[in-house]
Design a protein around this nucleic acid. Structure first.
Lengths: 319, 319
DNA sequence: TTGTAAGCGTTATCAG
DNA sequence: CTGATAACGCTTACAA
């Protein structure tokens, strides 16, 4: 910038004015500066600019479980879209359900002075996130602190799915889920139980299988379930990984079974898979919205938003 | 940091030493400083640190078409994983096949002094990317400049797919693709033509449909193709969007048609869809590798790496 | 082992 | 309308 000033025969401040389109510069002067900038290929350093006036350079941080999971990549897309509309850039990092890694990533983002942090929390305790820093929790609530949070209606959605299966005559309904330590899984399992209870069906613990972290594990679990002496006649799968694993298992299964899953997924329509849909786009959009509201000065008490779910019958749950 | 120094009764520099674990500080002094840091909840400002010594704060920039497309989200995941191994953070931005937007995003990332830029280029001209800046092009080559590039074997993969269909007796093979202006599409269409030519089959221009940007457009295109007076007996779909659109169209089609698609996708195995697979993870991994090689001092001429493809027969292409 | 001074690239203040 | 100077939070070079 100094070089530009020298070349244009003006002061540093004048160059700064031109760059930021500030008022009070003679067109002639501005012209000379603009030329010098072009000739020197000058490019303002946003990092330095943000250093000066406190506000970190228009950046949001997003800590997510796994960018490659379509549910979370949709969340990331939504957050990025909102950020982009406000001229913000987004740093995305994957924690992979690892609490240590999550902490490191959060620390790194905070050190980089992101203006706000959106996080799908994996760790057991979030007091380390200074309440002063703008953090919005997505998909799962924080532990140990109060903060803005956007959740899905996990319990209600799961209940709807299971009630749907019950309405179609099923009483032996299995529940196939990821790690029961996850908030979303606990809620969805509660929804499953509520539906059974409401219908007066006793829960058979051998039909509840948790801890399936990926498609392969879910497939194995469902295969096992279907080969029980008294196999379930219907399955409730608690997330997209488990639903897809179940579909694989069902393809090779001796008998048919009804299926209703939590989370919509691409090709679910083609496969005729009944699901409860919770829009990941909305999750990200609302999360980013809360973050920007804070940046805009909202300092009310922490808010929690819940995204509703919607049952989408496509055949697999109606047999 | 000044506050910490004051509280610990030491100088700024000593605090700096402790923070960076530099040698030459008495344990006792270090202890006092550490305490002061904890009490004040001090957190080093990485932006300021990077400003001082030139090197931008360990950040990579990634400009991609669309984070929500599973192919690109896998690329992003790979880049992030490599970056993370080196202690780098990743800023990801979606250009949505918009050249103007792409330029803005690149400029914003450069202003933020990312150490390297990985980009899936959409624009027609990339001379605006200073050759001095470390840029690696992914999936498509740059225009107007020389730079490190990682491509897929688009032509070879497409040829393999079409030859596979030909080997199964097909001669009326349609080609269903995205915008023909895209490098990958041009290459894949060339591969399609090469295979036809090699087999002595005359191309029927009415069987080549391009410009299908999303699943719905691809579905409509295939539906139209299948209702031609002399419909194709086989389809080559040039990317994952088009393959999925074709699957939708085929479900409702009067007669069957063989199908081989470019890009693998989740559930392709379940659906028995024959594809040519090009690993997006490798694309990102190699791209990040090239970028870091440059950061490590490699200043040889620009390199181009090509990721091989692999035909995965699953039934849809063998009938 | 510890401290002082200067500077990274920008913007804010206030004077000219 | 324009410019000198300080400041942002940190690190490097050089002393003490």
């Amino acid at each position: 910038m100094r070089d530009v000033a020298e070349r244009a025969g003006v002061s540093l401040k004048t160059v700064s004015r031109v760059i930021n389109a500030e008022a009070g510069v003679t067109p002639a002067t501005a012209e000379r500066v603009t030329e010098a900038i072009a000739e020197l290929g000058f490019e303002r350093n946003d990092l330095a600019a943000s250093l000066r006036h406190g506000r970190s350079s228009h950046t949001l941080g997003l800590v997510i479980e796994d960018v490659a999971n379509p549910f979370y990549s949709a969340v990331a897309q939504a957050v990025e879209a909102v950020a982009r509309d406000r001229g913000f850039l987004l740093i995305t990092a994957s924690a992979r359900e690892d609490a240590v890694r999550e902490r490191e990533l959060v620390a790194a983002l905070l050190r980089r002075r992101v203006d706000a942090l959106l996080i799908v929390p994996a760790g057991p305790d979030h007091r380390y996130i200074a309440s002063s820093s703008r953090a919005v929790f997505l998909d799962r609530p924080p532990h140990g602190i109060e903060a803005d949070t956007v959740l899905l209606d996990d319990l209600g959605g799961a209940r709807d799915a299971v009630e749907h299966l019950i309405a179609h005559g099923h009483t032996r309904i299995a529940c196939v889920a990821d790690d029961a330590g996850l908030y979303t899984m606990r809620e969805r399992i509660s929804g499953y139980r509520e539906a059974l209870k409401k219908a007066g069906i006793d829960e058979d613990p051998s039909l509840v299988v948790t801890g399936n972290r990926d498609v392969a594990a879910a497939q194995a679990a469902v295969t096992r379930l279907l080969s029980l002496p008294r196999p379930p006649t219907a399955l409730f799968t608690a997330n997209n990984r488990n639903t897809i694993g179940a579909l694989h298992a069902l393809r090779d299964a001796p008998g048919p079974a009804a299926l209703a899953g939590f989370d919509d997924f691409e090709l679910a329509d083609l496969l005729g898979t009944t699901v409860v849909r919770a829009d990941p786009w909305k999750l990200g959009e609302q999360g980013a919205g809360l973050a920007f509201a804070r940046l805009d000065g909202d300092d009310g008490p922490p808010r929690t938003v819940t995204i509703p779910t919607e049952l989408v019958p496509r055949g697999s749950g109606e047999r």
